[in-house]
């Protein structure tokens, strides 16, 4: 059974791991540096559907189907689905789970959803569940029309802006599975240092990532050097610089082993995405498609994945509220034995 140490960290005791995972993306994601790590790339970002919202649901369905298919499981073998996205009332997730007949636990953690889902799946799988499915998605077009402007509206994006990834990731987290094994989970606190610029989400989210990561280090008596890779979700170019600064202030220095999924998904210069990628699908797809295989093969041993979410809504932004952030951490390892 999982138990808590320190202030916030949950240690997963039984061997719970990622049984299978899949990443789905579209044209722009396929053309990026990680294009080959996607399981499914559909050039048509409508995924054959009539609306962008339906397209996003379809991506989730494809991702979970692919993850199950890889290990020969079916929906009836799944105990719980933890899913979330960026759309109002999380319709992409709810609608994609509609046909599954699996208990559905809808999550809203903005772009932190994938880590939130993986973390909860691990805690469930450590106690009474056998197989849990964690899914997260985002779609550039459905996000633009909800949060910003119509697609055909002509506007310039400031250098701190980020590009919502059209991507979905699904991870099947099971007891007696792995590598990658899930060793610990730290659910984060909501942090707000007063950023109110919707075009600078990286800066809005960096404090929450730093808060969660430094708390994890304190709870586990470990330091940045103990991990092969520390990966934030979608802080982008601006946020990841701030992340290093904030961690330094807390007394932890992040070295070469620190990276950000938002900096990895696209070629920032060539693909004109300014500060990098964002969206629930960003960390979900990068971790599912690119990082899990590396942990499974042993190329990476101990990895901390911290997905970061900005918890604003179009209403709160218009009302002049600042943008709070939240970040959840999952500690993966290629080895079965305990590390704490």
């Amino acid at each position: 059974m999982a138990h808590k140490i320190g202030k916030q960290t949950i240690i997963i005791d039984s061997p719970v791991g990622v049984f299978s995972a899949a990443a789905v993306g579209s044209k722009k994601e396929g053309e990026g540096p990680l294009g080959k790590s996607f399981d499914i790339i559909n050039e048509d970002s409508r995924f054959g559907e009539k609306t962008w919202e339906k397209a996003e649901s379809k991506m989730q369905e494809l991702a979970s189907w692919k993850a199950l298919h890889k290990v020969g499981l079916e929906m009836k073998d799944i105990d719980f689905i933890f899913a979330g996205d960026l759309l109002n009332q999380c319709i992409a997730s709810a609608f994609s789970a509609r046909g599954s007949k699996v208990p559905y636990i809808g999550l809203y953690g903005a772009c932190s959803t994938f880590a939130e889902g993986c973390g909860l799946s691990a805690v469930f799988a450590d106690s009474f569940a056998k197989n849990c499915l964690a899914i997260a998605s985002s779609h550039f077009c459905s996000a633009e029309r909800q949060y910003r402007f119509p697609l055909e509206y002509g506007g310039q994006r400031p250098p701190s802006a980020q590009w919502t990834a059209t991507a979905a990731g699904a991870a099947l987290i099971s007891r007696e599975a792995g590598p990658p094994y899930i060793k610990a989970v730290t659910f984060g606190t909501v942090e707000d240092l007063g950023i109110n610029d919707q075009n600078n989400m990286g800066a809005a989210m960096a404090p929450s990532a730093a808060a969660t990561l430094s708390q994890f280090f304190k709870d586990t008596y470990t330091d940045a050097e103990d991990y092969d890779l520390i990966l934030t979700g979608d802080l982008g170019a601006v946020g990841s610089v701030l992340m290093r600064d904030l961690m330094a202030r807390e007394g932890f220095s992040l070295g070469e082993n620190y990276n950000d999924c938002g900096l990895m998904l696209y070629d920032r210069e060539k693909q004109q995405v300014e500060s990098g990628a964002s969206g629930c699908g960003c960390s979900a797809a990068v971790i599912s498609g690119h990082i899990f295989p590396k942990i499974a093969s042993g190329e990476l041993k101990n990895v901390l994945a911290i997905s970061t979410g900005a918890l604003m809504s179009p209403t709160s932004v218009q009302q002049g509220e600042t943008i709070p952030g939240v970040a959840h951490l999952v500690c993966y390892s290629s080895e079965k034995g305990g590390i704490f």
């Binding site: 250098p159 240092l193 404090p207 601006v238 600064d245 904030l246 600042t322």
Partner: peptide, 25 residues
Amino acid sequence: MSLSSDEYKKMGEKAVPKTKSIRNL
């Protein structure tokens, strides 16, 4: 986080790349 939002704003301004004013104009 043990820092004020004013301090953070200053840190943030340094991290944001400059807009390409001449090119945009």
